[in-house]
């Protein structure tokens, strides 16, 4: 990686408030558990059977990582939940994780980042649209779904427009000046709604900090007219 620490590449992952899921890819299964832990099972095929040979179990805040090799390295068949950590598991902090696991950690973090970008944190119903500020703050994604079928998806670097006709495109700086009045009005409403969502998020954050460590998110304001 050419870097001296994992922290210089990425921040610890954060699975707070994410709903459980178990997602299989070609070589691994990544799970968000009920506890908020993130679990990665690495698979190897043996006698036409997929076996879990290595597990990384990462705490919800991303700072504690257990590594273990189930069944003393022989692995277990893949089932619907990760193997429990044995007593002889290896235990690391984010900053002490050996470099050979960095890529695996980054893989888990990439998955969590994707899920955060699709998980609503603040939902705000306006007169014309449902505006959702996602969990991937800072610079969280925003999806503004207009009741007439149009949709605007803002990420930190692109704006995607789906017109009510279904025509879709990505907006770039040079195109902003060529937009029709209609599309511009959708964009204006999306930007205004985005600002309201950020303001609501900030206000709720303030209240949350006064409370007893219970998250007030996700939160919904208003309802569809």
């Amino acid at each position: 990686f050419g870097s001296s620490t994992l922290r210089s590449i990425i921040s610890p992952l954060n699975a707070e408030r994410l709903k459980p899921i178990r997602q299989k890819t070609k070589n691994a299964v990544v799970s968000i558990l009920e506890s908020g832990e993130v679990c990665m099972e690495f698979l190897k095929e043996q006698n036409s059977q997929e076996r879990v040979k290595e597990v990384l179990r990462i705490s919800c805040d991303g700072n504690l990582i257990y590594v273990y090799h189930p069944n003393e390295g022989k692995g277990f068949p893949l089932v619907d939940r990760p193997p429990s950590p044995p007593e002889n598991r290896l235990s690391y902090t984010f900053d002490s994780l050996p470099e050979k696991y960095w890529k695996k950690y980054q893989y888990a973090a990439k998955f969590i980042k994707l899920v955060r970008s699709k998980t609503p944190k603040v939902t705000y119903y306006t007169r014309y649209a449902k505006c959702m500020l996602m969990e991937n703050s800072p610079t969280a994604d925003v999806e503004v779904c207009f009741y007439d079928g149009a949709k605007i998806h803002k990420t930190s670097d692109v704006i995607r427009v789906i017109e009510k006709s279904g025509r879709s495109y990505t907006l770039e700086g040079s195109r902003l000046s060529t937009l029709s009045d209609e599309v511009r009005s959708y964009l204006d409403h999306a930007n205004e709604s985005h600002c309201v969502c950020l303001s609501l998020e900030s206000a709720i954050n303030t209240e949350e900090k006064k409370g007893e460590n219970i998250s007030l998110f996700p939160i919904t304001f208003g309802r569809r007219p």
């Binding site: 890529k103 998955f111 699709k118 998980t119 609503p120």
Partner: peptide
């Protein structure tokens, strides 16, 4: 552990994302 060509997206993940939306309205 070849993770380079791993792709998360599939129907299962899409269904999960849809369930995250409040009131089931896209």
């Amino acid at each position: 552990d070849d993770l380079d060509d791993e792709e998360f997206y599939d129907d299962h993940l899409e269904a999960y994302f849809k369930k995250l939306l409040p009131h089931g309205m896209q």
